[in-house]
């Protein structure tokens, strides 16, 4: 008997890569110990991407938290992520905001910029143009608070870079569907 190709392994080959999509998922979960670990463990264990994840209690009486997860993957992987999340016992509902109709997503960032003279004036001028607020100031620095879509914040941060950007703290994306209905 002859041997198969030397390249043959114990497992089937990886499928040819399909185009990847970015999706925003809203996940309603019981706010109980370990629930975040379950979700994160699911993503790391199955090799899914997390681009952004936010979580906070949203309904105190019912102990419900809402997670907003931004992930990328092929359409098949995105469907898997949704079903795998729904399989977790403390998960109430998963909504794919990217396919479930129009949705709004926002992120908040605090941006610290250090500088004097023209740079300082320019930073303030740009902050105004981006509707960023000054929430802390010293003789040689500002902390701006900016809210918006992630790409807007990216853009603002890029502009601050040559003007003396010190550091940035971002919340990650939160999102909600448009219109009168809840999830």
């Amino acid at each position: 008997m002859s041997t198969p190709d030397a390249t043959t392994t114990h497992y089937p080959a990886a499928p040819a890569s399909e185009r990847s999509e970015r999706h925003t998922l809203s996940v309603l979960v019981d706010n109980e110990p370990g629930v975040l670990a379950r979700v994160i463990g699911l993503f790391s264990g199955r090799g899914y991407n997390i681009e952004s994840l936010t979580v906070s209690e949203t309904e105190h009486q019912k102990h419900l938290s809402r997670m907003t997860i931004v992930t990328t993957g092929t359409p098949m992987v995105i469907e898997q992520i949704r079903h795998q999340l729904e399989r977790l016992v403390p998960v109430h509902r998963v909504l794919d905001l990217t396919v479930g109709g129009p949705a709004i997503d926002r992120e908040l960032a605090m941006v610290k910029v250090r500088g004097k003279g023209d740079n300082r004036v320019e930073a303030l001028r740009l902050a105004d143009a981006f509707r960023a607020r000054v929430i802390d100031a010293s003789i040689e620095s500002f902390v701006f608070e900016i809210t918006g879509r992630s790409d807007k914040i990216d853009q603002f941060v890029d502009l601050m870079l040559p003007l003396g950007l010190v550091e940035v703290s971002r919340t990650g994306v939160v999102a909600i569907s448009r219109g009168p209905l809840g999830m």
């Binding site: 008997m1 198969p4 390249t7 043959t8 392994t9 114990h10 497992y11 089937p12 080959a13």
Partner: peptide
Amino acid sequence: IPSGKAHNEMLLGDVAG
């Protein structure tokens, strides 16, 4: 069926072969 192969690429033993 060696892994990574299709169903119509299966190996048979000596006798059946």
